[in-house]
Simulated scan of single mutants.
Amino acid sequence: MTDSAVTPETEEEANKPHSIVPRANVAGTALMLVIAIMAFLGSLTLGAVTLVNDTARGWQSEIAREVTIQLRPIDGQDMNDALARAQEVVGGFTGVTRVDIVDDATAARLLEPWLGEGLDLKELPVPRLISVGIDENNPPDFDTMRSSLAESVNGATLDNHRAWVDRLTTMARATIVSGLTIFALMMAATILTVIFATRGAMAGNAHVIEVLHFVGAEPGYIANQFQRHFLLLGLKGALAGGAVAIICFLAIGLWTRRNVADPSADQVAALFGTFSVGPWGYVGTIVLIFAIGMLTAITSRATVLRHVGDLDASPKR
């Protein structure tokens, strides 16, 4: 009875195709862990690049829709009259959608972090501001507007924030290039790791590979054995790392939304808006998971084919 119970399982296992690559070992687990870490860091890098790119576009769009007029206090000049004249001059230009004078209360709130509460702007030589809305598709001639303001209102200057935005955009582009460079280095490190892991697996089965090759096994058959093995390892590791990265994206976005009134969240929002990775960040992470799996399989296959080619070139033993 015992023999009949054991024999079918033994025959079934004997009929299963045996792989020349060890299915589970310490090296394979370590490789999967390394790939998971690389996928996690790569996903974070892609998310950061996407966030900075979206923020830079938001800066440019906001600047294109608004400019600011600043009126400095001048002795003998009535500030309210100067504000009204500046508003009238700017409102006559084509492409201007609105002209809003920043009132005392709003100006006091803007200065509050530096000068404290309870400001009386009438007692301080503080410039007054006018916010001007601009039609992005049909902007006015800023040089002409600047000249008209200078002729009509003493102490009036027009600021289209271009210099400030150019600096921020340059910083954003440098950050994006740095992020993509780091991402490329991580992918190169992943490729090297897979190459070494494949060579290690081949070294542990070198006699089997040589025998199979010299008895007529096609190089593609041997390469397929390693390719399937490392494809599964790569997908498992990349899926784990990508999933953790997506959870981090969601957690950070949830935190900023819940703490929108917190001072630290306000500072983050000033630079990045509501800190949340856009759809392309998630799409990029999903694509990265499959890309790492395929990259792992292709790298392993190429390494095996090169090794088998070296066997052909070496003297027969």
Rank of each mutant, 00 (worst) to 15 (best):
R258S: 13
V99Q: 03
T256C: 02
Q87R: 11
A188F: 15
L129H: 06
G133K: 12
A297D: 08
L231R: 04
Q60T: 11
H307I: 08
P127D: 06
P139V: 02
D262C: 10
A36W: 01
A172I: 02
A188L: 15
T285A: 05
F214E: 07
E66K: 13
N259S: 08
V211D: 04
M171D: 03
G155R: 05
M145D: 06
A270Y: 15
F196V: 08
W59F: 13
F230D: 00
R85C: 07
P263R: 03
T296I: 02
T299D: 04
T198D: 04
N15L: 13
S178V: 10
M186I: 15
A64Q: 09
G58N: 15
S314Y: 02
F290D: 08
D78T: 08
F40H: 01
V177N: 10
G273W: 00
L168W: 06
K316A: 12
G179D: 12
A291M: 09
I209E: 01
F272W: 01
V49M: 00
S131Q: 11
V67K: 02
N138V: 10
L305F: 06
I63F: 13
R173E: 05
G237S: 03
R173F: 14
L110R: 14
A82L: 05
G116T: 13
A189M: 10
V102H: 05
